[in-house]
Design a protein around this nucleic acid. Structure first.
Lengths: 199, 199
DNA sequence: TATTTTAATGACTATTTGGTCATAAAAAGG
DNA sequence: CCTTTTTATGACCAAATAGTCATTAAAATA
């Protein structure tokens, strides 16, 4: 009796079209009509799968961060400070392709920072990352690898901010790769010295 | 014969109104009409002083960075590590009003990150800040306040990235003020321990 | 194939808003 | 106080675009 469509498949198709349109036109010139056309459907159809442009944007960003969340969930807990520092280094060593997407991200979603919902989506991701670090730091304090006069909750979230800052500056201001790796080593050294338990 | 008005004074007044409106409404909801109203003038009058909304935005961002550069130039060199850390704390302790402007900045100028020239303008500012820190760190190494196995040039620029990261996360993800100050203290402690010369 | 239910369509609406312009007001000097 | 020049005003216009809805198409099943 009823016509049946794979909703998720359709949303995926639309999100792919959105990506193409965003890259080609810039985010704020990407009208719902253009995105629909790129997906090969009518505007009304698009609204059957996303209630609003904001909903579409949020779904887009969600998918963008999904990969990183998956990566995060795969990470095991570090048992030593060195291992912990290595974890951080791994998360900072994004490849050059990924770095090039950072300015595009701001170009595309800069205007979205006006939306509370949008900011919350991103904030949730960083909070999750912060909690991951916090738990690990708490464990490392128990293991007596890290000195105990710091708050794991606070320093975990701070670490995320600092790491993000380093990554953003790399992506936005395109320092040389070699230079970036120097900076990584220096900052990781600083992190390690800052966290180290002294006897 | 002619009625005469101080153009610069008027532009300043309008830019102040724009700032207020941007913070209150966000950039995209700040219509020229609202800005004019905030400035206590008619919309048509506003267009006598800025040819377009874009012209207004550019004037606005120019003024924003000019202030920060002035602030930077006024800073003296720290003689001790504690003084240096205090410097950093001062630069991180932006007031809540300023923090509220951060999302507005990305909202308004996010799309500009597609422009190489725009990124360079901002990069120059951060480089200037990085050099300031580098020079101070070099001096502190001479003063034997900081251990000598780090590169002042590199760590100066890294510090700027990390500081910027902390500030951005505060502004964008609006943590509680008290929480932010805790984070500041924790991260400054980490910086200090990381930089400290050990005997 | 007829029936039923869901999906697709795109012209249309409602609203928003950057920018204009004819008119009015203000100031300065003769 | 009249004239001239500059400045101020806000109703108005045109364009853009998010979102709607009556109508049509498609698919699944009996």
């Amino acid at each position: 009796m009823p016509k049946i469509v794979d909703k998720k498949q359709m949303q995926k198709k639309i999100l792919n079209a959105a990506m193409k349109t965003f890259i080609k036109e810039g985010f704020h010139n990407s009208t719902m009509a253009k995105i629909a056309k790129e997906a090969g459907i009518a505007k009304g159809t698009l609204y059957l799968y996303f209630d609003s442009k904001e909903a579409l944007s949020i779904a887009f960003v969600d998918r963008y961060f999904a990969k990183m969340k998956t990566w995060l969930n795969q990470q095991g807990e570090a048992k030593t400070l060195d291992e912990f520092i290595f974890h951080i280094k791994t998360s900072l060593l994004i490849d050059e392709e990924e770095a090039k997407f950072i300015p595009v991200f701001f170009e595309a979603f800069g205007p979205s920072f006006g939306s509370e919902a949008f900011r919350k989506t991103i904030a949730d991701y960083f909070d999750k990352m912060g909690n991951f670090y916090s738990q690990n730091i708490a464990q490392l304090i128990i293991n007596k690898e890290i000195h105990s006069d710091i708050s794991p909750q606070t320093i975990g979230r701070v670490l995320v901010s600092m790491i993000d800052g380093i990554m953003l500056h790399y992506g936005l201001f395109s320092q040389e790769r070699e230079n970036y790796e120097n900076m990584l080593n220096e900052s990781l050294h600083l992190f390690k010295q800052g966290l180290l338990k002294r006897d």
